[in-house]
Design a binder for these strands. Structure first.
Length: 226
DNA sequence: GCGACAG
DNA sequence: ATCTTGTCGC
């Protein structure tokens, strides 16, 4: 898969995002929920040792069974700057995806896609660079606002930008628990993205894909560090 | 200028 | 993200 060039500074990173944003595809419904493969990706850091580990876990969308796993380790190439998360996470994530034998299918990212200051978050960036359908599921609303969705699993409410634009949805995956924040990345629409997220979050608040990827990248970091 | 801010 | 014990509940 393609490489991610590390920007020299913040202005250059913005320029890259502004250019790639035009390549995002928003008019495809995306893969039907519950069929094919879904791949979760996540990253863990050891800033002390300047190391990063990424994991990609492929799941059977119907059963949520693990089909394949891959990891990659590398050096931290970019600092954490809100709005520029992709430059920090994607290089290693792409390496993990490249190590996969399976076609990843739909990629589920830990963070945002469209819901982003320049409408080009992590999931959109990953989608454009790989060509794969991708969506983002975040644990926090970032700078966006929302009214709490209904109490039942599956209830949702719009995630709104300052100008009132709907950039995603707050989706309740568990009763009595804080919602997750879903936004489209590439080649998937918002309704389909929410449907996938709900199916993946069958047993816990977060999608099984990100839970599995989170556990795996932490383990990979431990083993690379030890 | 200050604070807020996905992971 | 990461630093971190116990604790309440199914």
């Amino acid at each position: 898969m393609t490489e991610i060039a590390t920007p020299a500074d913040e202005a250059e990173a913005h320029a890259v995002q502004d250019e790639l944003r035009g390549l995002v595809v928003h008019d495809e419904p995306g893969p039907p929920p519950g069929t094919g493969l879904v791949t979760g990706v996540d990253v863990a850091y050891d800033d002390e040792r300047d190391m990063v580990a990424a994991a990609a876990v492929v799941l059977d969308a119907a059963t949520l069974a693990v089909v394949e796993e891959a990891t990659a380790v590398g050096r931290v190439a970019f600092p954490y700057i809100p709005g520029l998360l992709a430059f920090r996470e994607l290089p290693t994530v792409l390496a993990a995806l490249a190590a996969l034998r399976s076609d990843p299918g739909l990629v589920v990212c830990d963070g945002y896609g469209l819901a982003h200051p320049r409408r080009f978050g992590l999931a959109a960036h990953l989608g454009v660079v790989t060509g794969l359908p991708a969506l983002g599921v975040a644990k926090n609303p970032f700078t966006f606002s929302y009214e709490p969705p209904g109490a039942r699993r599956g209830d949702s409410s719009p995630l709104l930008a300052e100008n009132g634009e709907e950039v995603g949805r707050a989706l309740r995956t568990r009763e009595g628990v804080k919602p997750v924040f879903v936004s489209v990345g590439h080649r998937v629409d918002l309704a389909t993205a929410c449907a996938h997220t709900l199916r993946l979050a069958r047993d816990y608040r977060l999608p099984e894909s990100t839970r599995r990827a989170d556990a795996l990248c932490r383990r990979a970091l431990r083993e690379a560090t030890a």
